[in-house]
């Protein structure tokens, strides 16, 4: 069956000679995962540095807190990863969380069934996502503008509902998601604890990984980010998939609202200001290209943990003024973006 023609010689890279050549050869063929590996190396480096300088980092209580305090961030980082891989952006995440949590708490306090309320909170998010996706896909609105509109809309609606902290009833079953479960009983308070919220975040990560890497929908999402027009001409369901990522992003924002509210027990219309930017930063640090087509949910998790760990280090240090957190975040982000540019340029 095969054609007998003089095809160009195999284009596989020649077998690398030395260890150095092997490394560069690997880097050449794995350019897309390079920034993610870099993020992992930097994260490990940060952990080691913090352990040596401040101590008590690699211990159960610190690790537990890192996970518990950042579970909502991990969830929305996964959400943003989906969107950014298609080459889009979702700025409405933080505001959707605010609306969802305020509305959810008010409904729960009004006596609605707690489980129904949790489902509704996710559904609110999904609805915002659906509107964004529809604007982007069918009215050709820029993702930046469409989700910016949703951001103002959601934030405004949250403020319409209430401008004061809404406290979730102490006996509400929603709080169960925030209860700490002891996994490992360490000396004194040095226990390893998790909350159902952490479990949810980890399930989201696993689910995100599965969808992106093991389903045709996931591969379509990557293909859209690679070149939307090509994906379209290849006969892939581009329209549906593009809508879907915004619905996923919205739903996960609703879920993050559930997890966050359960932990804090309070919902407020000013919750989540700037969280979308944290999530974008986490995704970018974790190796997701803002131009689309490359990125990993696991990378975004590392990105979220890098941001979380930075906060831990800054509070431990004590001599770094808290205002510096933002400056340092900016610096770290800048470094990663430059790294990505270098990688992209090499690929071109």
């Amino acid at each position: 069956m095969s054609v007998q023609t003089a095809t160009a010689p195999p284009e596989t890279p020649t077998p690398p000679a030395g260890p150095l050549a092997r490394v560069t050869g690997w880097m050449r063929t794995h350019t897309t995962s390079l920034p993610t590996w870099a993020a992992l190396v930097i994260f490990v480096g940060m952990v080691i540095y913090a352990e040596i300088v401040y101590g008590r980092i690699l211990q159960p209580s610190t690790t537990s807190n890192l996970l518990i305090n950042n579970s909502h961030l991990i969830i929305i980082a996964v959400a943003l990863t989906f969107v950014i891989i298609t080459g889009g952006i979702d700025l409405s995440v933080g505001a959707v969380i605010a609306f969802s949590s305020v509305a959810g708490v008010m409904l729960a306090n009004a006596g609605w069934n707690a489980y129904l309320v949790m489902v509704l909170m996710i559904a609110f998010g999904a609805t915002f996502g659906l509107i964004s996706g529809w604007l982007i896909q069918y009215l050709n609105v820029q993702p930046f503008i469409a989700t910016l509109a949703m951001m103002f809309l959601a934030r405004g609606l949250a403020s319409t509902l209430s401008t004061v902290p809404e406290r979730l009833g102490d006996d509400s079953p929603i709080r169960a998601l925030g209860t700490q479960i002891k996994i490992y009983d360490g000396p004194k308070v040095n226990d390893f604890v998790i909350t159902p919220g952490v479990v949810i975040a980890l399930l989201v990560v696993l689910g995100g990984f599965f969808v992106l890497h093991r389903t045709r929908t996931g591969r379509t999402i990557y293909a859209i980010g690679g070149k939307e027009q090509s994906a379209q001409l290849m006969g892939l369901p581009v329209h549906r998939s593009k809508m879907l990522v915004y619905v996923i992003s919205g739903s996960l924002s609703g879920l993050a609202a559930v997890v966050y509210t359960a932990r804090l027990g309070i919902a407020q219309n000013i919750t989540g200001v700037g969280w979308e930017l944290d999530a974008i930063a986490a995704a970018v640090i974790g190796g997701t290209l803002l131009t689309g087509g490359a990125g990993f949910v696991l990378g975004s998790v590392i990105g979220a943990l890098v941001l979380g760990l930075m906060n831990v280090i800054i509070s431990r240090d004590g001599s770094i003024p808290p205002e510096m957190t933002t400056v340092i975040t900016g610096g770290v982000l800048l470094a990663f973006v430059l790294l990505q540019r270098a990688v992209v340029r090499r690929r071109e």
Binding site: T32, Y222, A223, G226, K227, Q229, L233, M234, G293
Partner: peptide, 12 residues
């Protein structure tokens, strides 16, 4: 269909 511009995605 195969087009003039290679309609594949370079990131995969």
């Amino acid at each position: 269909t195969v087009y003039q511009e290679v309609n594949l995605v370079r990131n995969l």
